[in-house]
Structure formats: structure tokens, C-alpha cells
């Protein structure tokens, strides 16, 4: 009976989501206040931003979209590269791998904690812009959508890198930084994409941060390189690719 299948499917989905949420809550309780996550997720983007913003003649308020974008990048992708190697070392990750949940839900649950952490942290530059510099937000729904998609995209990227089978947090962080650091230079955060050389412009198309930053810029200034709809579609494609790749790598590396 199709109705029974539908009911069974809904029940399974509800169970999977509930287990994913349990994993995310566990990470929130354990890892949100770990020193290396605070350094990597909050201080690192702040200092990176200050280093580049200092010396720019632009009014501080105009730098807020870029600060939000790199905060989302660093904070969202910082939880799982710390939590998963630690859990491998203390063998609690085996508990998750042997639980009656799909790998997709495990990856989703892990990413969820980075996603929520990042959304909260990104509210700090957002509030800073509003309170200190009276930075106007022209399109709040686009900003919220941009923050949600960008945050989830980078949280999944962090989970993907954490699939690398090591018990050493530093190893995952080093690999991740070889990707994260170049992203902030090629994605229009500090240098507008239109002023980059042609090769740089082409490379920018392969960076998810380009589309997240583009949407945030649109939300603040009404101007963007691409349409917000295109940004949404591309970010969703990146999330899908990272989720599938993470799923495959966790399967492969657990053999």
C-alpha cells in the first residue's frame, strides 16, 4: 500500500532527523567553547579582517558584508575538523558510525552544529554594523538566506575535510586552511571580482564564498555580480556536492 510506505518513509525521516539533531546538540555541548574552536572560528576571521581592512580608505560600515562572509566561512568550518579527530582518538566516533542511522544523517548532524554555531557568531558583525556604523540592510530576507546557505555550505565543507582519517586536529586544520585562506582572496571579499585578472575571475567561479559574499553584498548594497537566485542555486549545488563527497569519504576511510 503506497500510503503505508509513505508513513514508513516519514517515520524513518523523522528518526533520522532526530538522531542528526542529537548529534548536533552533543557537539554544541562539548565543543562550542573549546579554545581551538574559539581561536579558529572567532579570533582568526576577526584578525584576518582587521589585517586587510586596516589601511583601506573605505568607511568601516562598508566592510561589514565582507566581515560577515569570512566569519561564516571560518566559524562554520571550524567545529567538525576539531570534534571529529578528537572523537576518533577517544573512540566515540565509532559509536556514531555503528548507530542505526544513515551516513547522510551522520554527516548532516555533524554539519548542523557548525551551521548553528556560525549563524550565532555571524550575528556579531551583523550587530556591529547596525549598532556601531548604522550600516543599512536593504534586503533582509536575502541576507538571512545568504547567511543560512553560506553557513551550511561551509559547515559541510568542514565535515568533508574531517573525513580524513586522522586523530590529529592539526592535520585536518592544516589541510582545511590550504583551501580556506585562498578562498578569501579569490571570492571578492577583499578585492572585487571585477578588478581581478581574468584568470582570477575564472577561479572565483569555483569558490562557494564568491556566491555567499555576492548575496550578502546584494543584501546590503542592492548590487551584485550574479542574481541572488543564481547564488542560491550554486550554493545549494556546492552543499550537495560536499554532502555526497563527505558521505563517500567517511564510507571509504572507515574500511
Amino acid at each position: 500500500m503506497p500510503s503505508i510506505d509513505l508513513e514508513g518513509g516519514a517515520k524513518r525521516l523523522s528518526r533520522e532527523l532526530s538522531a542528526a539533531w542529537a548529534i548536533a546538540r552533543k557537539d554544541m555541548r562539548i565543543y562550542y567553547f573549546k579554545p581551538n574552536i574559539i581561536v579558529s572560528g572567532i579570533l582568526f576571521p576577526l584578525f584576518m579582517f582587521l589585517a586587510f581592512a586596516t589601511g583601506k580608505n573605505a568607511p568601516p560600515g562598508t566592510l561589514i558584508p565582507g566581515l560577515i562572509a569570512i566569519t561564516l566561512l571560518f566559524s562554520a568550518s571550524s567545529i567538525e575538523p576539531v570534534s571529529i579527530p578528537i572523537e576518533r582518538r577517544v573512540k566515540t566516533f565509532e559509536r556514531l558510525l555503528s548507530a542505526p542511522i544513515s551516513l547522510h544523517s551522520l554527516v548532516f548532524g555533524e554539519s548542523l552544529s557548525g551551521f548553528l554555531y556560525s549563524l550565532v557568531i555571524a550575528c556579531l558583525p551583523l550587530a556591529l554594523g547596525v549598532v556601531m556604523f548604522s550600516t543599512a540592510i536593504q534586503n533582509a530576507p536575502v541576507l538571512v538566506t545568504a547567511m543560512i546557505l553560506t553557513s551550511f555550505c561551509f559547515a559541510t565543507l568542514g565535515t568533508l575535510f574531517a573525513a580524513y582519517p586522522t586523530e590529529n586536529v592539526g592535520e585536518v586544520m592544516s589541510m582545511l586552511n590550504t583551501v580556506r585562506l585562498p578562498l578569501i582572496f579569490i571570492s571578492g571579499v577583499f578585492i572585487p571580482i571585477s578588478s581581478m585578472p581574468l584568470i582570477g575571475q575564472k577561479i572565483a567561479l569555483f569558490s562557494p564564498l564568491t556566491y555567499g559574499n555576492d548575496m550578502i553584498e546584494f543584501a546590503y548594497t542592492g548590487k551584485s555580480l550574479f542574481s541572488p537566485l543564481l547564488d542560491i542555486v550554486v550554493l545549494m549545488i556546492f552543499i550537495l556536492i560536499f554532502q555526497i563527497a563527505a558521505n563517500r569519504l567517511y564510507k571509504k576511510f572507515n574500511e
Binding site: K26, R29, V90, K91, T92, E94, R95, S98
Partner: peptide
């Protein structure tokens, strides 16, 4: 897996919980 309980050799509990 739903019908199993797994007690691994390492006491894999969450110390911070």
C-alpha cells in the same frame, strides 16, 4: 543495527557530558 547493542573495548563515553 537497531536490534544490536555494542559495547566496545574502549570505554567510549563522552567525558564532557
Amino acid at each position: 543495527r537497531q536490534s544490536m547493542g555494542i559495547v566496545s573495548e574502549n570505554s567510549n563515553v563522552y567525558d564532557d557530558l
